[in-house]
Design a protein around this nucleic acid. Sequence first.
DNA 1: GTTTAGGGTTAGACCCGTCTAATTCCGGGA
DNA 2: TCCCGGAATTAGACGGGTCTAACCCTAAAC
Lengths: 227, 227
Amino acid sequence: MLSDVMEDYLKAIYQLQRGTDERIRTSEIAGELDVTSPTVTSMLDKLEERELVDREKYRGVTLTDEGETVALEIVRHHRLLEAYLTEHLDYDWSEVHAEADRLEHHISEDFEARVADALGEPTVDPHGSPIPGADLEPPERPAGKAISEFEEGAVVTVAEVADRDPEVLSYLADRGVEPGVELEILEVAPFGMVTARSSESEEPVSLPETVAHHVRVVTPAEPDPQG
Amino acid sequence: MLSDVMEDYLKAIYQLQRGTDERIRTSEIAGELDVTSPTVTSMLDKLEERELVDREKYRGVTLTDEGETVALEIVRHHRLLEAYLTEHLDYDWSEVHAEADRLEHHISEDFEARVADALGEPTVDPHGSPIPGADLEPPERPAGKAISEFEEGAVVTVAEVADRDPEVLSYLADRGVEPGVELEILEVAPFGMVTARSSESEEPVSLPETVAHHVRVVTPAEPDPQG
DNA sequence: GTTTAGGGTTAGACCCGTCTAATTCCGGGA
DNA sequence: TCCCGGAATTAGACGGGTCTAACCCTAAAC
């Protein structure tokens, strides 16, 4: 009987925690959900009360196993919806996020199962992000590394584009940067900007640091390191 | 900027108004939505404030044109979802109502349009209820008449089964009472119970008054009176 | 070891949707 | 016409989720 809002907090904490083992701080959550810090504090009180987060006052929170399970359920809904909308309702890769956000709290278990079935139990969504399984076990770490960690001249394959801004996604899609595409890295500027060329396009793409940060790639030699 | 709850009230008023021109009374809405009368009164204050209902204190409400438009939008969502779930996600006719209720407030205009397109712009849902058009003009009255208004021996075609209880719907579906099926009326008891036999089944079905009330039928001679 | 900047928490308020208890209105029967 | 039962409204409370203003803690700089 968690509210939609509580689920949003748990999901936000999960996303912020992604990859790291760090505690998540009040202000990060506030930024993610676009609310004020006191609002977050009071919600953390409630989540702690329900044993969905572990808390150290003034030092941030971690999800408990139970909290993580709830978050994974929401993430599973979100990513299944993204996949379904893309596959069966002709949505574009760049448009699905907002719709999935609207719906993720409101589908039944039955709906979830039917959608998963219609898609053949997929394990990644259209952005290349892993879809948690029906067992809600925490999935392996995301594939690959941020593109900015590679050197000039490297040839890599896009594994995941985790940005959520439709404008950014359209920009990338227009230039052939999407999961599965091969990229040659042309330049890595000291301030984190990456320039690359997709094998399917003449025009190079420039990815400012904030964007590059969301583009994860694997090398052909190391197709999926799994952590 | 209407809340989900406000939309629920408008939809409830619309459904209760269906067919009639009567004002809808506080207690009817309370019963429909399973809240108390004072709760309804206070919500009616807000809806009146926003000019979504016309109100006469102590005498019930009517939807304004604007209120009706909002209600029609929700009803359109609901019935498109029912049709989509039945057609593309293998839901049974009797199961779709609850899922559509969950989702109807949370789909975008874009989603609505894509679903309508995927279905070929349908005009009735799986229960035979008319789906309001994208223009949100008030649709014609429902087809046909309640089955209890016919006499013994009449042969009629089921146009609509507007009940929402999955148990009732399963009962009817099991005995072949669904839109499009031909029925021979065997008996109409004075207390409103109707017994009939579908052309596809040996067993007659008995419909208690509360169920019969939701089963609307047309005669072959008068296939769709449209009001 | 002190100071201090900046994020975190507490205090207190507000709106929404709901409830129960008390009051008021409406309409039918005498 | 008056009364009365049933329905509607008003009054007041509450929990959820949010805010602003004020205060407090932490950690880094000195």
